Simulated scan of single mutants.
Amino acid sequence: MADKKPSPSAKAKTTANKKQKPIDLYYWPTPNGWKVSIMLEECGLPYTLKPVNIGMGDQFKRGFLKIAPNNRMPAIVDPAGPGNKPISIFESGAILQYLGRKTGKFYPSNERARADVDQWLFWQMGGLGPMAGQAHHFRQYAPKKLPYAVKRYTDEVNRLYGVLNKQLRGKDFVTGRYSIADMAIWGWVVPYKNQGQKLEDFPHLKKWFERMGERPAVKRGFALGLDLRRGTLGDKTKEAAKARKILFNQRAK
């Protein structure tokens, strides 16, 4: 995992965060990775990119497992954690909540408002993310097409898009004000075509998706590390086949 230089937002460089030690961001450009890169950019926090090439098995290396025992990125190490001592955190939702508490940004302090953000964050973590991931797998990567599985997960993602579309009626953002819930959800809508969905069927979601995509910090967070990827998992190459073998059908070790 080759380190990249600290990458704070140009506009967000302040006297305070210039003095702050950069957060180490263990990352690969995927919907889960984008959540954290977008949050760091939105908050203007300095960070050092530490790529975790999941197609090459970096997530199984001993050093990374000490930070993220579930062998999944993203993860962070904040050298200025609670008590000004280092802390490592894995799971994208936990990272978003931590950064929200740390900065006081995009995560309400009011308990009622925070509960609203939390429920939509967990809606993504427990619903949209896993179901969209299964749709990707059976539509794009499964060695054999299984019509039942394709329909099952495509339909479930469609249902979830419908839930989100209704929630966004009359709102600019998922809970009314921009929050970590929006950051968590947006990246999982980016590959909507691979999920078999049409944004035109969900007009409120479509407007929100486009509105999110115009935010400068979202653009920067989304672009982070895209140059590191070579091809896709669905490619008919030896490299893609090797990556699929690493990523899919893992068992306990």
Rank of each mutant, 00 (worst) to 15 (best):
M1V: 12
D3K: 12
S7A: 15
S9V: 01
K11N: 12
K11P: 00
K18V: 13
K21H: 06
I23V: 14
L25S: 07
P29E: 05
P29W: 11
T30R: 10
N32S: 14
E42D: 08
G44H: 06
Y47I: 03
L49R: 00
K50R: 15
M56K: 15
M56F: 01
M56L: 14
G57P: 08
D58Y: 00
F60Y: 15
R62D: 15
N70M: 15
I76N: 04
P82G: 06
G93I: 06
A94T: 10
Q97P: 01
G104A: 06
F106H: 09
P108F: 10
N110V: 09
E111L: 14
D118G: 04
Q124P: 03
Q124K: 02
A135C: 09
A142M: 07
K145C: 00
K151A: 15
Y153E: 06
G162F: 08
V163K: 00
V174M: 12
A181T: 10
A181Y: 10
M183H: 07
A184Q: 03
I185V: 09
N194T: 08
E200V: 05
E200W: 00
P203S: 08
H204C: 13
L205Q: 09
K207I: 11
W208C: 09
A217E: 11
A217L: 07
L228M: 13
R230V: 12
G231S: 03
T232A: 03
T237S: 13
A240C: 06
A240L: 02
A240V: 07
R251G: 01
A252V: 13
